[in-house]
Nucleic acid binder design. Structure first.
Length: 313
RNA sequence: CGCGGGGUAGAGCAGUAGCAGCUCGCCAGGCCCAUAACCUGGAGGUCGUGGGUGCGAAUCCCACCUCCGCAA
């Protein structure tokens, strides 16, 4: 390659940041523009906050575009055309990308999706792989077409799960050095013509929707494996919760599954340990937070509250 | 002006006008083959900050700082 490959990068959350960093660090590429979601109000005070990708793009003095919408946005489309990108790389952008934009890049449009497609197409592949207690999941690098997570696959990398991962740790794992290297190597091989894109088997496709907060309420009538999966899948957002004396109690990972049974939801403080019964076994909680209070370790919680024999509902 | 709950010993909490407490931890000593067990004693607090009311304020009033739950 005599000239660097001109890339337009689209991405928004923390997950996309390592990918952007690795692309900007590689001389083979030149990131001509970063497209990310507009700054949005966040937190209790609703302070306008830039997305993580924007912050990193600013640090690297990259051109940043934050269109409200992509569809029928002539002004935005013109700017992209001026750039004449060779490649569009999309990592967790957060919006459907219309055909008019997919038509721009000369070499193609590449997407990183954190599941082994065609399984878990859609918005929350990592959470759902954990929720369903999958034995493994992975990363897929694919070419985009106009259907969601539907395009032909360039390469996949499997990641084994052992039942202790939470949403945050898996996100980190899927954007670590190995993962970003995987993207870069795949792009290079693809441009060199060494990869033949493989169409997905649509019959095997499964879909996952955006996580809703209601799904994070714990039902103690369920088996503890399911409750444990919920607690891990919903950390750090929206965080699995239950109630104690009509107050909301967030339950944080990790939790330990232990033997024995009791009435579902019943709490017992055994020494320093906070044990709650599920449908079939017991769950040891290590960290929790009552509304209005800070997060505390189970041991500290037991000391200040005599709760043995009460129920989570 | 979105709604709401907190800030008290190193930790977690109780105390809502009248001597600042509980559990754990910590220090010293005792018991014991021994211990995270048990017994005895001890240290450790400007009760978030500033002002106000009262004979008297952790407690009531006002302002501010700060942490957090909901909502978005």
């Amino acid at each position: 390659m005599d000239k660097p490959v001109k890339i337009v990068f689209m991405g928004t959350p923390e997950f996309a940041v390592p990918y952007l960093r690795s692309l900007t660090a590689d001389k083979y590429f030149e990131v001509k523009a970063v497209i990310t979601q507009p700054d949005k109000p966040a937190g209790r005070k609703q302070i306008i906050t830039p997305p993580p990708v924007k912050i990193v793009a600013q640090e690297n003095n990259l051109l940043i575009l934050q269109p409200e919408k992509l569809k029928d946005n002539e002004e935005f489309l013109l700017k992209l055309k001026e750039i004449k990108p060779d490649l569009l790389v999309v990592v967790a952008y957060g919006q459907i990308i219309p055909r008019s934009i997919l038509a721009l890049a000369k070499l193609g449009n590449i997407n990183v999706h954190p599941s082994l497609l065609p399984k878990y197409r859609g918005a929350s592949p990592i959470q759902n792989a954990i929720l369903n207690n999958e034995k493994s999941t992975g990363l897929t690098i694919m070419l985009m077409d106009e259907k969601m997570d539907h395009g032909p696959i360039l390469a996949q990398q499997e990641i084994a799960l052992n039942g202790t991962e939470n949403n945050e740790s898996l996100h980190q794992k899927m954007s670590d050095k190995k993962s970003t290297d995987f993207l870069i190597e795949t792009i290079k091989k693809f441009i060199a013509g060494e990869i033949k894109p493989q169409p997905q088997d649509d019959d095997k496709a499964t879909y996952c929707k955006l996580i809703k907060k209601e799904e994070a309420k714990i039902d103690w009538q369920k088996p503890v494996e399911i409750i444990s999966a919920q607690i891990r899948a919903f950390y750090p957002w929206p965080v699995a919760w239950t109630t104690l004396n009509s107050k909301r109690a967030k339950i944080f990972p990790p939790v330990k599954i232990t033997g024995g049974t009791d009435e579902p939801g019943k709490i017992s403080a055994q020494d320093d340990k906070l044990i709650v019964a599920g449908q079939d076994k017991m769950l040891e909680i290590l960290e929790l937070q009552i509304e209005g209070k800070n997060k505390v370790k189970a041991k500290d919680f037991i000391l200040g509250n005599h709760i043995s024999g009460q129920y989570f509902k």
